[in-house]
Amino acid sequence: MLFKTITKENFRNMIEGIMENNEVIGPKSRDRDTKGAKIYRFLKLNSFDELEMDYTRSYSSPKNYFLPFKEDLATYDLRDTGWEQEIRYTIHPRIIVGMRACDINALLKLDQVMLKSQYPNPYYSARRRNTVIIGLDHEPLEDCFCRSMNTDTAFHGFDLFMTDIGEKYFVAINSDTGYMILNRFDSCEVGEEDQLLYKEVRGRIESKFKTQVDITIVPELMDLEFESDVWKRWGDKCLSCGSCAMVCPTCYCYGIEEDIDLNFDKATKRRFLYSCNLLDFATVAGGHNFRPEAHIRLKYRYYHQFRGFVEAFNQSLCVGCNRCGKACLAGISPKAVIDDLIGTEKR
């Protein structure tokens, strides 16, 4: 990998330069919580000043820029007995600034499903290939457990990845696009001092992880504890509201709906992200629901994340960002559930 540094002033110039002709997405704050802390989300930036480089965690992950919550897959012109189908998956390029290592790793996991499987998904592929990702390191929050999920660092899946080393950003370059962007604005070669500073920052970040989740035996536990009352206990709290899956950087379950216009001459096939926690997720025609109970649906969300995905791709689907834990009003977090499953949770 190639490395460079860029001063904060030049970084500003860079983003403003990109912004002139491109859509730039970044962490922005619009609301504050009851304690006065900012609530962040990834939105389109209108100026550099809106970009919050010291943001903590976005409420929702930026996955919707790759897997939109709602997306038209095809349109149809209906006529008499037949129809013509039109499929489009061209999108405008855009830049996402400030993605965390866990979110980039989340994309790598989605790539496994959407790009590297038997049926590549052209819609995802178009978005993935036309999005420039500028990553940003941060000091772990109280409840980040990406370290345990092995997603606290990103080695690929981005174009540029920046670490704040004081006056400058230390930048890892992982694509030709990233290299070209950086070269158009004043960047410097990495000096000995920069390297020392970078090592120091990395060391500091690594020493600050407070939350650990031991998942070594979790895949087996998922089967061994399948009938455990742990699931019932957490399931009783679950609102079956799907918030966890919506904010999750890797949950990709979806549904297809078709719609027709009022003149009955145009139809649309639409994909909408769904959640396995929602009541009718597994209901088949005729009304039989394969998962009628909340705790069973909750269990399967964990089963897919920590067992099913491991079997298919040798890694957990979870990246340890704890967004689901934060978004869950009932206080269901992966750390608590898994600790309970292992039997280390203090009751």
Partner: peptide, 21 residues
């Protein structure tokens, strides 16, 4: 829809109003 409002609320990238008290 059988599901609750939260699904579409999260899809709008809203801040949860509970967090805002």
């Amino acid at each position: 829809p059988q599901y609750p409002v939260c699904v579409e609320c999260k899809q709008q990238l809203n801040s949860c109003v509970f967090d805002m008290g």
